[in-house]
Amino acid sequence: MKVADFELYKSLLYDKSGLVITPDKSYLLDSRLTPIAKKWNYPTLDMMTLQLRAIPDPKLVKDIVEAMTTNETSFFRDTKPFTLFQETILPHMLQTRAAKKTVRIWCAACSSGQEPYSLSMILKDMEAKLKGWRFEIIATDLSEDILAQARKATYSQFEVQRGLPIQYLMKYFTQVGETWQLKEDIKSMVKFSTFNLLDDMSRMGQFDIIFCRNVLIYFDEKTKGGILGKMEKLLDKDGFLLLGGAETVLGITDKFVPMPDKRGLYIKNPALTTPTTPASSTTGGFASGLFKRT
């Protein structure tokens, strides 16, 4: 790919999705955009690039942006965050939200749905304990193609064997030919919609828990900081943020702090959320009170 073309795609992707693409990844542009050129009936990728430069069709731009996303995911990815959800976060929620009995969860880059569906399976398993409670799982992604897959909730034999315990497969899936279909009652617990993390988030409403996993890695610090800053506003004061294994808030924002000994789990910075009276200006009070159990 020519340098000027690379620069064109680089700035387009950065503007539209936040994706940072470095010259050593320029081969990715070739391999992923050639099929798009074909789909749009351009004889070559160069021809498509030419067209894009002249009159960029928004639908073509959308296809290009979606083609460049990485949708890699799995059920119960990395295990730990889901154990934390079940054993640490949920007990805290049951205690602190006892009055309203409602918990809102956001999976902010849900890809083909394995992450939100893992949460629904956990909740379904705990049904007896959660009688009378309402759990709302909102799952969003930039890519409409991947959301269409998520809504279908049909998975390949390979996908149901990565991270999904066999008991869950037996309980919550039906076999349809070579594929596995998630059962309706688990599926219907998740609400999907398109959402770009670069956009204004205020319409999303308030959340108790935000999963924002394995998406910030694709962005630069400015974008990461911007997204985390917006998320902080949507998160309840004693809510939780979960990031991917290779992601952190450290050095990016002071709006969140990592929970000690709970990898990947973050809370709002107590130093910023508590009034700055001399007594509460130490960071201990709020965070250490979090996991008191009755």
Partner: peptide, 19 residues
């Protein structure tokens, strides 16, 4: 304790053994 449907690969065996 677990069940793998062939064909398998490192990823699947690892994932099941972790579980």
């Amino acid at each position: 304790n677990e069940y793998i449907m062939k064909p398998f690969d490192t990823e699947i065996i690892k994932s099941k053994f972790i579980q």
